[in-house]
Amino acid sequence: MKILVTGENGFVATHIIQQLLAEGHTVVGTIRNRAKQPPIFDNVTYVVANLTSAEGWLDAMTDVVSPVHSAMKMPIIPN
């Protein structure tokens, strides 16, 4: 089964992806920026998509049976 996991390199998402891969699923992960967020898993397809934009989501959802939403927008708070 092809499953989309948002926020691919976040703490929660990495554990979800490990479990999905162990169960034999095909995983698509979203990242905001390839340069700043290098892929963690070799066997996951990565799509650049941001929660604040519609760009990338159509590609991310192609043939996906189920999304797992683990991303969230975090404000930057100055020290």
Rank of each mutant, 00 (worst) to 15 (best):
L4I: 01
D59L: 14
V44F: 13
I16Y: 03
T52Y: 14
M1E: 00
M74T: 07
T52W: 15
V65T: 13
G24H: 07
A49Q: 11
I76C: 03
Q18V: 04
V47D: 12
P67Q: 09
Q19P: 04
V68A: 11
I31L: 00
V12S: 05
M61C: 12
G24Y: 09
P75N: 08
I76T: 07
M1Y: 04
V64T: 10
L20D: 00
A60D: 14
L58C: 14
M72E: 15
A22M: 06
Q37H: 07
A60T: 15
V12W: 04
H15E: 04
H69I: 09
V64Y: 13
T45Y: 13
L20P: 01
S66D: 13
I3P: 01
I31E: 01
P67R: 06
G7W: 00
L51A: 13
G29S: 04
M61Y: 14
G10S: 02
V44D: 08
N79M: 02
K2D: 00
R34P: 06
P67D: 12
V12G: 02
I76M: 04
G7V: 03
T30D: 03
A49T: 11
P75D: 05
A71S: 06
I76V: 06
P75C: 06
K36Y: 07
L20T: 02
F41M: 09
E55Q: 15
Q19V: 08
P39R: 13
T52H: 15
G29T: 02
I31C: 02
T62S: 15
G24L: 07
V44N: 11
L58G: 13
R32C: 03
E55K: 14
R32N: 03
M72H: 10
S66G: 10
A13F: 03
